[in-house]
Design a binder for these strands. Sequence first.
RNA 1: UGGGUCGUCGCCAAGCGGUAAGGCACGGGGUUUUGAUCUCCGCAUACCAAGGUUCGAAUCCUUGCGACCCAGCCA
Length: 554
Amino acid sequence: MSTQDTPVSSNFIRQIIAEDRHNNKHNGRVATRFPPEPNGYLHIGHAKSICLNFGMAIENNGSCNLRFDDTNPEKESIEYMEAIQRDVQWLGFSWDNLCHASDYFEQLYAYAVQLIEQGLAYVDSLSADEIRAYRGSLTEAGKESPDRSRSVAENLDLFARMRAGEFNDGDYVLRAKIDMAAPNINMRDPAIYRIRRVHHQRTGNAWCIYPMYDYTHCLSDALENITHSLCTLEFEDHRPLYDWVLTQLNTPSHPQQIEFARLQLEYTIVSKRKLNQLVIENHVHGWDDPRMPTLAGLRRAGFTPKAIKDFCERIGLTKQNSWIEMGVLEYCIREDLNENALRAMAVLQPLRVVITNYPETQCERLCLSNHPQRPELGHREVPFARVILIEQDDFAELPPPKYKRLTLGGEVRLRGAYVIRCDEVIKNEQGQVIELRCTFDEATLGKNPEGRKVKGVIHWVAQDYSYPAEIRLYHRLFTVPHPDNEENFLSVLNPNSLEVLSDCRVEESLVAASSEQRFQFERTGYFCLDAVEASQERLIFNRTVTLRDGWVKE
RNA sequence: UGGGUCGUCGCCAAGCGGUAAGGCACGGGGUUUUGAUCUCCGCAUACCAAGGUUCGAAUCCUUGCGACCCAGCCA
């Protein structure tokens, strides 16, 4: 599926599927699957695959399964399975069937027995090291294992005993008998079953042998009657093995594997192993840390499913290794939030301003629009009083060229309120500006002053009618665009990726913000009420992304 | 002198023999009580290179060059 506003462009997989339907291949049916291993949280790279697989199914009136590739219990867990389902649903997709490779273990075992009977698989007693040595190298053919000629009867017996738990881990493996001289190393008698006495999150202790990916994946696809098995480029070399297994066995179908380039996003990483390391070693505060490129992290930062799906459509789909600039993702979330987030005012680094000609005890409740371009989104009341707070950055004693905000003796518009003039700057002993004394022009509420132009507009809150909040600003997690190229990716972690501002003040209306609700704090960016740590008593907003800043500073 | 894959604008990406779409980024103009949004304009005589086929080539052929992936009992 694609969002309605993103034009759908042609890509090679769309073309293949369209052609297959035209030729009535698979009776015109389209069935895909998203097959994560439950060994970590889903990240933005998975989103590309999710959008592709579910998208092709939706576009073609087909089906898409969520299938857990759970054949390596050592690294997998229920927590990850649950998180993955949550994230896929959050993105807005529904699977046709929830599947697990482990559901096919019995069937897979039976197929392996068939392979043995056909003389196409054998039990090998070589150690892992020996198998590696026998495999040859990129330029030299491998050697055949002495066990390659084991009789069918003996193989059958040994394989049954592997399953029965008669051997220790590593004593034996079941190998496909293909070709030790094959130029494609994946075809040099790959292992298809190994012994692992590990408790499996779903099958418990029922098995002590587990099938390998290459053997499991193609058969799982075939058993689910998948038509197009979409995966990333690194599996290209595995396709001959995928097809070999399905050709030898009499399976319900023979899906077509098609490979595409995985997403690489600048200034971040999408390796589950490395993301896991960031979590384990506490470089971030969990898988859902807003700095993480995980779906859980992006969600907590305030990204929307719509923006992420839009992003996945915009970046295209090819077989070219490429790096996407952060700007594309930022554009997508800004586009969505600009249209849909309510506006509000928050002062991140307050500077006290006393409006000397404003009555001491007066408080006006000004009416501000929730969205300048969408009046149907309503308006709200914002209290205005004698003492207000503005952003420290919005005042400059020595303004740089083209500065449009407040200066000593200068005027500025308070957003939705009056024009004020700064008459006096008050400093502490260290010379820091701690207060501004200003006067307001009563005639400028809702209209421009006469005879002069005020070019600047700044946001504000009334000191006594605002609320304290913590605001977390997130910066890129890494200091270089391609952290993966680094010898040690941790060495290029950005030490300042999290900036916590604890003295912020937000307008009254934000007290009613709901969990995960997103806002535009005018002039500063898009923010989201933190879903984990915020409460009625403690307002915490996460910055999703800044506003575009077209101001060229000198 | 192993195998597989890929080379079109700073970053993505259409193009499928008829004379280089689009998006992001960037530069400039206009509107604006957000330096936002919106809007207008600009942005590859050129498709890794060199040959060849053709009336015509980014598209076909040849030869180079460059990049990525593969030697887990991981996926």
